[in-house]
Amino acid sequence: MRYTILSLWFAVATFAQIKAPSDEASLRNGHTLYQFHCSFCHGKGDDGMAANLVSPNLVHAPTDSSLVNIIRNGIGGTDMPPALGMTDEEMLQVAGYVRSLGRTAQTSIPGDKAKGRALYNGKGGCAGCHMVGGSGGRMGPDLSQIGAMRSPSNLRTSIVEPNAAIVGGWTMAHLTLKSASKVSGIRLNEDNFYISLRDGKGKIQTIAKADATKIDRDITKSSMPSYEKVFTPEEMTDLIAYLFSLRGAM
């Protein structure tokens, strides 16, 4: 019976938007199915060889309908295959689980976000390296949607112990050139022959590796120091409340 209703719903869904379920039982089933069908390539969501799913906005799936459609049919021209042996209901559950990876619920958490914002821009100097809504520095990830992507405890870890929460694509590289001058920056690209860096001022330079006598890369070290001692516990709570409220234009 349940399936009859579901089929009817799918017929209707051709015209209406599908909404992936977010109740606990569906998420649990979705997780089990995800482990079986998706984790081979996507890992836990952000550690696999395929696309990172821990994002509030999935490039190929702006809506739940398009996400279900991708699970059903794969993505042509990529390695993403169609679902194998999943029912319509199961695909919806997987979609719900995938959405949950990239969207932390906007729950009420302790702290004063207005104070947190003042700390972010003032005492913390966070805007020196991070952008929110198009303003700020360029040495760290854009935080405009960080609250939708990370839980409060994950945000705390990133601030207190940055090396435990390294984000790919932000590796610092330090080059000593043949001229003995030194260059450091966020590594934008590296291949066998060239390395491209962006420095703190946003200046980008590409250097032939043959011109460097030494190249060090901070693979396991974040360029962000720990801010544990910068803030009082109350201030930390306020800062996290501010960061958790950052949800972009969603």
């Binding site: 482990q35 079986f36 890992g43 042996g85 890369r217």
Partner: peptide, 23 residues
């Protein structure tokens, strides 16, 4: 992981990821 054979479906019983912290 744990997989049971089902015709035409994945039969992997696990996965791997690249070792973090290394290039």
């Amino acid at each position: 992981g744990d997989d049971t054979y089902k015709e035409g479906s994945w039969y992997l019983a696990g996965r791997f990821v690249s070792k973090p912290g290394e290039e």
